[in-house]
Write a protein that binds this DNA or RNA. Structure first.
Length: 435
DNA sequence: ACTCCACAGGAAAATTGGGGTA
DNA sequence: TACCCCAATTTTCCTGTGGAGT
């Protein structure tokens, strides 16, 4: 019997491309987004009358269709316009600093491979002037789409966004408009008034989808991908419900459906029911965590590893000092130069933002004030993912110690009654109960 | 009321490393 | 090659702090 026979029953379910359910696929129709699309089209249509359209700010939560809708509309626009609109799309999320985003923007505007700017080294003002000259060089219209514009804002008062906007508005022929996309509702509030007014000439709000919207979207996308009646109605509803829980996230709902179908294919099942959707959700959540860990910088991985092994020894909540002590031990074992406690403290905050750790600052009075930290998830899985890094695969845990700070305090002060220990477990218990 | 722990987290200096120019 | 400029990353130095002990 051929090994592949078991997996060759694909045709029982599929009749189209599963890619149509992926997040990057741009369909040719957007149910429940007609008004938003119409709004954008109205603004952009002035290009066809050879006047510069207003800048547009699009905002809405993730998975509300901001990006695909924009792709769709701009594509239609360049098809409709005879003298060629050039659409430059930059996803600011991909870059980690406003500086590199700026470089990318300028490079997206370049006409040929030869006049690319090197990714580092140029002073800012030279980049700006290059931006201006490139915009003025071209005769046709530019449409600069900045996805996740909020990433362009610098914490310490930098104003690259302002400069870009000013350049676009002031350039002599003024043929360039900007479309900003953001999922941060407070984005505008954080801007200076002069930036805000330029950015916000037109704004389009993408409201979250509700469960019945999502149901329509899923059915629409399934159309032609899957054979009739292979996905039960209740599975679609469940998928929509889960997506609606997550602030009306269509991307997540579609991802779940796609994963569920993949599971059904692999297992050779004939139908997609609630069960497959639930399995898909579990897998989805695991993948997110795995991906988050895998893409962590090396030092963050070590800190994460230290958190995991410290928690293995501790079984309850940890404090910063313990994680740091073991972090140093691990660095010593593996031969890395350890970072300062200050930096590790920041890394711990970053890991908390990623949702890999949870932390609450608490004061233990006489015993100081520190963060109580716990790992959010299954320790053994986390450890497995971290150790997949080739730099860390040699880790054996030989030098990892248990609760160094804790024991030192007790020993040096001869706390016979174990007040600290009692206090620690009280706090730990109350924290755990909170969850 | 006062002390003092064990950090949090702000600010500024120092280091790193790419790239330019002479 | 030597040297300067730049942004990013870390380190150094620092002040701040909630509340148990005394």
């Amino acid at each position: 019997m051929n090994l592949f026979t078991k997996y060759s029953r694909i045709s029982n379910i599929l009749e189209g491309d599963l890619e149509h359910l992926s997040g990057s696929y741009v369909p040719d129709s957007f149910p429940h987004r007609e008004t938003e699309i119409d709004h954008i089209v109205r603004v952009l249509s002035s290009i066809l009358r050879h006047t510069r359209p207003s800048n547009i700010l699009i905002y809405g939560k993730t998975g509300t269709g901001k990006t695909s809708t924009t792709h769709y509309v701009t594509k239609m626009l360049s098809e409709a316009s005879s003298d060629g609109v050039k659409v430059c799309y930059v996803n600011c999320q991909v870059y980690d600093s406003p500086y590199s985003i700026l470089i990318t923007i300028v490079n997206t505007l370049s006409e040929s491979e030869s006049d690319m700017i090197p990714p580092l080294g140029w002073p800012l003002d030279r980049i700006y002037s290059e931006l201006i000259s490139r915009i003025n060089r071209r005769k046709g219209f530019y449409l600069l789409v900045l996805d996740e514009v909020d990433k362009l804002i610098e914490k310490n008062g930098g104003d690259s966004l302002y400069v870009i906007l000013k350049v676009l508005d002031d350039s002599t022929v003024s043929r360039t408009s900007l479309i900003g996309i953001t999922n941060d509702a407070g984005f505008l509030d954080g801007l200076e008034p002069r930036v805000r007014s330029r950015m916000n000439q037109e704004s389009v709000l993408f409201t979250p989808y509700n469960a019945s919207d999502l149901r329509d979207i899923i059915s629409f996308r399934l159309n032609g991908v899957v054979k009739k009646n292979t996905v039960t109605e209740s599975a679609v509803n469940l998928c929509a419900a889960i997506g609606a829980q997550e602030h009306g996230d269509a991307r997540k709902a579609l991802d779940l459906m796609r994963i569920a179908i993949e599971i059904a294919l692999r297992e050779g099942r004939e139908q997609i029911t609630d069960e497959e959707i639930y399995q898909a959700r579990d897998k989805f959540e695991m993948d997110v965590v795995k991906e988050a860990i895998k893409t962590l910088p090396l030092q963050s991985k070590i800190v994460m590893l230290s958190s995991v092994v410290t928690q293995e020894l501790n079984s309850k909540l940890m404090v910063t000092g313990e994680i740091f002590a073991n972090y140093r031990n691990i660095c010593a074992e593996l031969g890395f130069m350890p970072l300062t406690s200050r930096r590790v403290s920041d890394i711990l905050s970053e890991l908390e933002d990623f949702g890999l750790l949870s932390a609450t600052t608490k004061s233990m009075g006489r015993y100081g004030r520190t963060r109580f930290i716990s790992v959010m998830g299954q320790l053994d899985l986390f450890k497995k993912y971290i150790l997949e890094d080739e730099n860390l695969s040699m880790f054996r845990g030989s030098k990892v110690t248990r609760q160094s700070r804790f024991e030192n305090v007790v020993d040096s002060r001869k706390q016979e009654n174990g007040n600290l220990e009692k206090r620690l477990s009280e706090i730990a218990d109350s924290e755990i109960q909170k969850d």
